[in-house]
């Protein structure tokens, strides 16, 4: 039941993109086409889950025992950057096909604030390792969901006649606002 609350809560109720404002850059940047946004979602799912688990282990087996919690920000971002690099190298060797699909998105993920954000949130919410992994995974699914819906809308938007001044980013942001409004309908579903 707890896991169910975590899953529904982070996919719908407090969607990472539309209510927490994490990972907006890829949300606006790569959401032009449906296929690229699915690729990006896959890469985020992979890295986010892995990064959250690794940073969780570091937090509780390295930082807390030595009283180094103030180093959290520095350590986490370095771990994430190194992890992304490592995933890229391993993926290239082990599964070239998957690397082809996710490759271009991997370097972008280091600066995706969703990864660092979820890692810090997991520690703040005092989840255990399994809860943290579920939390990370459902946040990544929420991210992908928002990205895919948004890409679908934007593909349609291309063929619409938009007032001149609003073309491009402004109309995309207003659309995202309306999408966020729709997601507010889930408020109060859990807790």
């Amino acid at each position: 039941m707890e896991y169910f609350v975590i899953i529904v809560g982070s996919i719908f109720v407090s969607n990472i993109v539309l209510t927490q404002f994490l990972g907006i850059c890829p949300f606006v940047g790569v959401s032009n086409r449906l296929t690229t946004s699915i690729g990006m979602g896959g890469a985020v799912l992979f890295v986010l889950t892995l990064a959250t688990m690794v940073t969780w282990l570091i937090q509780y087996y390295l930082l807390v025992p030595f009283g180094l919690q103030f180093m959290q920000t520095i350590v986490f971002i370095l771990v994430i950057a190194a992890l992304v690099q490592m995933v890229e190298i391993i993926l290239k060797k082990v599964s070239p096909a998957l690397y082809e699909a996710l490759g271009v998105f991997l370097p972008l993920i280091t600066t995706n604030c969703a990864v660092l954000g979820v890692a810090i949130l997991t520690v703040q919410k005092q989840f255990n390792l399994l809860e943290g992994a579920v939390f990370a995974m459902s946040n990544a699914i929420g991210f992908t969901l928002a990205l895919v819906i948004f890409a679908g809308i934007r593909e349609h938007l291309d063929t619409m006649e938009v007032p001149k001044g609003m073309r491009g980013v402004p109309i995309a942001l207003v659309t995202a606002g309306i999408l966020a409004l729709a997601f507010m309908g889930f408020t109060g579903m859990v807790k």
Binding site: L18, T19, F21, G165, M166, V169, P170, I171, A172, L173, V174, A176, G177, I178, A180, L181, M184
Partner: peptide
């Protein structure tokens, strides 16, 4: 109240960008 909540952020920023572009 919607402008304090999440959707308002996107909508206001969208219009501000349009104005600044102009």
């Amino acid at each position: 109240l919607v402008f304090i909540l999440a959707p308002g952020a996107f909508i206001v920023l969208g219009y501000l960008i349009a104005i600044i572009n102009k």
